[in-house]
């Protein structure tokens, strides 16, 4: 009865509905994009009406919002934060710096393509994207969740060795190596 395919489908629909309408966001404020988050959350654009609210720690968060360029020093912290989050989890890459390097394309210390190191579900382009674009991105993510296509975390688990190899290329010997963080 429980393992029946149809009942599983109904459970999935209910769970996806709940996940879609309640996104706890951990905004990892790197770069200039962090300044776009307060107007998105406060009275002018009010993302809370879509059920989007801030979470203070990775344990409580569903969405990791990476707002701008990542230096090699921060990417290590971001990977640790991502791996501390609990399933299901999603990543939003924010601004052209996370897509192709943006204006830091020739910098010696910032990574250029975020989806080589973390599984990105949605990219929001722009330099910087305005709060309207951010909300649009969140709504795209909600659609993906409802359709059951937002499976970045699953992809990360399945292709962990590929991601680890990419991370090792940038981070060298100090790449995080534990998958579960219980400390």
């Amino acid at each position: 009865m429980i393992n029946d395919k149809n009942s599983q489908k109904i459970v999935d629909i209910i769970q996806n509905f709940a996940r879609k309408h309640s996104l706890f966001v951990l905004a990892y404020g790197t770069g200039c994009g962090a300044i776009e988050i307060p107007p998105t959350m406060t009275s002018r654009y009010d993302a809370e009406r879509f059920g989007i609210r801030g979470a203070a720690t990775p344990r409580q968060a569903d969405v990791l919002l990476i707002t701008g360029y990542l230096t090699t020093k921060t990417v290590k912290r971001v990977i640790r934060v991502y791996e501390q989050m609990q399933d299901p989890k999603y990543v939003i890459g924010f601004g052209s710096c996370t897509i192709n390097g943006g204006m830091y394309w020739d910098s010696y210390n910032t990574i250029k393509v975020l989806d080589r190191y973390l599984p990105v579900d949605i990219y929001i382009n722009g330099c910087m994207p305005r709060p309207e674009a951010v909300i649009e991105g969140f709504i795209k993510l909600q659609k993906k969740i409802m359709e059951g296509r937002a499976e970045g975390a699953k992809h990360y688990k399945e292709n962990l060795e590929w991601y680890r190899a990419n991370q090792k290329k940038v981070l060298g010997p100090t790449t995080p190596h534990i998958q579960e963080y219980n400390w």
Binding site: D106, N109, T110, K112, V113, G172, T174
Partner: peptide, 25 residues
């Protein structure tokens, strides 16, 4: 962190070549 090249703010350090070598495009 874990820097193994020439100090990067020296003018003879080629940051573009380094970025191409180290990061994915």
């Amino acid at each position: 962190e874990d820097w193994d090249d020439m100090p990067p703010m020296r003018r003879d350090f080629d940051t573009e070549a380094y970025a191409r070598k180290r990061f994915f495009a």
